[in-house]
Amino acid sequence: MTKVVNYISEAFEELKSNVTWPEWSEVQHLTVVVAVFSVLFALATWGVDTVFAKVLGVFFNWLKA
C-alpha cells in the first residue's frame, strides 16, 4: 500500500512541477473549437446517415417492384 501512496504523491508532484499548463484563456478558446467541430462532425454524420437511409429505401423499393 505504501508503494501506491508513494506513486500517487510523486505523480501529483510531477504534475505540479514539471508540466506546463496552458493559460485559462487558451483553454477556453480550445474548448470552444472542440465544441464547434464536435457539432459540425455530428451534423455531417447525421447528413450522411440520412442520405444513405434514403438511398437504401429507394433501392429496396425498386427491388420490390
Score class of each variant (00 low, 15 high):
residue 1 M to S: 11
residue 1 M to C: 05
residue 2 T to R: 14
residue 2 T to E: 14
residue 3 K to V: 00
residue 3 K to R: 09
residue 4 V to P: 00
residue 4 V to N: 06
residue 4 V to D: 04
residue 4 V to Y: 05
residue 6 N to D: 11
residue 6 N to H: 03
residue 7 Y to C: 09
residue 8 I to H: 01
residue 9 S to P: 01
residue 10 E to K: 09
residue 13 E to W: 07
residue 13 E to C: 06
residue 16 K to S: 09
residue 17 S to Y: 08
residue 17 S to N: 12
residue 17 S to E: 10
residue 18 N to V: 02
residue 18 N to E: 12
residue 18 N to S: 07
residue 19 V to P: 06
residue 20 T to A: 10
residue 20 T to Q: 10
residue 21 W to N: 03
residue 22 P to D: 02
residue 22 P to A: 00
residue 25 S to M: 03
residue 25 S to R: 02
residue 25 S to E: 12
residue 25 S to A: 07
residue 25 S to L: 03
residue 26 E to V: 04
residue 26 E to L: 06
residue 27 V to W: 01
residue 28 Q to L: 12
residue 28 Q to I: 12
residue 29 H to S: 11
residue 29 H to F: 09
residue 29 H to V: 04
residue 30 L to G: 03
residue 30 L to N: 13
residue 30 L to K: 13
residue 31 T to L: 08
residue 31 T to I: 00
residue 32 V to W: 01
residue 32 V to I: 15
residue 33 V to A: 02
residue 33 V to F: 01
residue 34 V to G: 04
residue 34 V to P: 00
residue 34 V to T: 04
residue 35 A to C: 06
residue 35 A to D: 13
residue 36 V to Y: 03
residue 36 V to Q: 11
residue 36 V to P: 05
residue 36 V to G: 02
residue 37 F to S: 08
residue 37 F to K: 13
residue 38 S to I: 02
residue 38 S to M: 06
residue 38 S to V: 03
residue 39 V to Y: 00
residue 39 V to F: 04
residue 39 V to K: 00
residue 40 L to K: 06
residue 41 F to S: 11
residue 42 A to H: 04
residue 42 A to I: 13
residue 42 A to G: 07
residue 42 A to D: 01
residue 43 L to N: 02
residue 43 L to M: 14
residue 43 L to G: 01
residue 44 A to K: 05
residue 45 T to S: 11
residue 45 T to N: 07
residue 45 T to V: 15
residue 45 T to A: 14
residue 46 W to E: 10
residue 46 W to P: 01
residue 46 W to C: 08
residue 46 W to H: 14
residue 46 W to L: 13
residue 48 V to N: 05
residue 49 D to Y: 05
residue 49 D to R: 14
residue 50 T to D: 04
residue 50 T to A: 07
residue 53 A to N: 05
residue 53 A to D: 07
residue 53 A to H: 05
residue 53 A to W: 02
residue 54 K to N: 10
residue 55 V to R: 14
residue 57 G to S: 14
residue 57 G to A: 06
residue 57 G to R: 07
residue 58 V to C: 08
residue 58 V to F: 15
residue 58 V to S: 13
residue 58 V to E: 10
residue 59 F to T: 10
residue 60 F to L: 08
residue 61 N to A: 12
residue 61 N to R: 11
residue 61 N to E: 15
residue 64 K to C: 02
residue 65 A to D: 13
